[in-house]
Write a protein that binds this DNA or RNA. Structure first.
Length: 461
DNA sequence: AACATAATCAACCGCTCATCC
DNA sequence: TGGATGAGCGGTTGATTATGT
């Protein structure tokens, strides 16, 4: 049995090495010395990477193979970037984390020269700092992009995530996000972790092991498996492994799952037609930009315009419809909704939405009509799902049972939230072109200290 | 200057997964 | 098929450095 020698409590490496060497086959722990590094480098250069457990045997190092691998991967291998993360890299990390959660290795694969450990340390530092400040972890655009990412992911993968898919013909960055996730909690956690009892909810987002998310609808459906989202053709291309961000330039959508062909309503939407969701690669053009005050607190957010951005709201609407249908089906005859049925519903939903668009009807107006008699900015909260007379016949088809969580999500979508300078680099056109002031009474949103926006965090943020 | 606190970094631990026999 | 083994991943810890008082 090997003995483990630790020098954690002091820096007297020579002394510890002596101690370690007193025991044949003993393993040293703690910081690596330059001599050890040199030995490891020489060994790897001679024999190559891998077979780490043979390294201590063949090189004379008193380190376990695991430690050797880690040292090599994190510090010694060539082409490693040292130093602070660039703003661009930080932006990528935030985006990736919103989509992938704590998948540090996968994130590292998108950041050439960076290690999972580095990214993890960076993120944990950032999280701690922002949590202390009571700030949201993600910029608003990231939240939306991540949401859309998961929508598309769910769309692409009818069935729960199967890890085996990632290694074959499918995009590399498929999330292992919790599938059954309370939508509004998800949103709140993304926006402001303080609202969610901090770490527990944060982990609920990214680490299903630590906190099993509560199913939103008691089924496989949740906010993220909307299937009627329309994206542009160019974003529907599968992406390959490798450093997507830096090979192709920074592009959030480059890691998005491709669109399932069946979900695009080709008969209703000509390939060349430009829908709000297809006006750019990510399919989210025009989301950013509104401003307003909520509870006397300044929000900086992506403007959530129903007129110009029916995609996300449409997603929510159709999702609710789909959920209702599925739930009704289950509750009525306890029949499991088949994938084919769901697919059929999805296509139907798309047609409904696009028919409404063709007739000049927006989802916004649909909601207002549906909710006539209520204040204009009030989202209908009824769960009856019954049709009401005197409505736009097209929209009567969109017979949505408004789940509380779904409504909460919509109600709480902030209208303005600061975007950090480092993050807004790629969104200048968007923010300048679509920024507008919302005069509507804003919905209640997460509490964010006005002076602690995204763009005034020291250092990293 | 001395101390306290925060931030950063490096390394280890435990677990999971894939592969081999 | 199931156990052994190796490799990798994510979480955590502890040391060091930076910053504030």
């Amino acid at each position: 049995m090997m003995r483990i020698i630790s020098n954690n409590n002091n820096n007297n490496n020579n002394n510890n090495e002596e101690v370690a060497n007193d025991y044949e086959g003993s393993l040293k722990k703690g910081p690596w010395t330059p001599d050890e590094d040199a030995i490891l480098i020489e060994y790897v250069n001679t024999y190559g990477e891998g077979n780490w457990n043979s390294v201590p045997k063949n090189s004379g190092l008193s380190r376990c193979g695991k430690s050797c691998r880690l040292r090599w991967a994190n510090h010694l291998r060539p082409n490693l970037k040292k130093g602070a993360f660039s703003p661009e890299e930080e932006r990528v990390i935030v985006d990736l984390h919103a989509k992938l959660g704590n998948k540090w290795a996968r994130m590292a694969s998108q950041l050439p020269g960076r290690t999972d450990n580095e990214i993890k340390n960076f993120w944990n530092t950032r999280i701690k700092r922002r949590e202390r400040a009571g700030l949201p972890i993600y910029p608003p655009k990231v939240i939306r992009d991540a949401t859309l990412y998961h929508l598309r992911e769910e769309q692409y993968f009818e069935k729960p995530y199967n890890s085996s898919l990632t290694s074959s013909s499918f995009p590399p960055l498929l999330s292992s996000y919790p599938k059954k996730l309370n939508a509004s909690n998800h949103y709140h956690a993304l926006v402001n972790p303080k609202k969610l009892n901090n770490s527990n909810h944060y982990h609920a987002l990214v680490n299903p092991k630590k906190n099993q998310p509560i199913p939103l609808y008691g089924s496989s459906s949740n906010l993220f498996n909307y299937h009627g989202f329309v994206v542009s053709n160019n974003s529907a291309q599968p992406v390959s492994h490798g450093s997507q961000y830096f090979n192709n330039g920074f592009n959030i959508s480059s890691i998005m799952p491709p669109l399932a062909p069946s979900s695009v309503s080709s008969s209703q939407t000509p390939p060349d037609s430009v829908t709000p969701a297809s006006s750019n690669v990510s399919g989210v053009d025009g989301f950013m930009g509104a401003s307003s005050k909520v509870n006397n607190e300044q929000y900086e957010v992506a403007p959530f315009s129903l007129e110009g951005n029916r995609s996300l709201l449409g997603a929510l609407v159709v999702e609710g419809q789909s959920i209702l249908r599925n739930n009704n089906t289950r509750s009525e005859d306890s029949t499991v909704v088949t994938a084919a049925e769901k697919s059929s519903n999805k296509r139907k939903s798309i047609v409904i939405m696009e028919n409404a668009e063709e007739r000049g009807t927006t989802v916004d107006s649909a909601l207002k009509k549906k909710n006539s008699g209520k204040s204009s900015n009030e989202i209908p909260m009824t769960s009856s799902g019954k049709k009401q007379s005197g409505k736009d016949p097209t929209l009567e088809e969109i017979d949505v049972s408004w789940d509380d969580d779904l409504c909460s999500l919509l109600n709480n979508f902030p209208t303005e939230m600061p975007t950090p300078e480092w993050y807004s680099g790629g969104d200048k056109a968007e923010s300048s072109g679509h920024q507008k002031t919302q005069t509507n009474t804003p919905p209640p949103g997460p509490t964010i200290e006005p002076e602690l926006g995204w763009n005034n965090m020291p250092s990293i943020c």
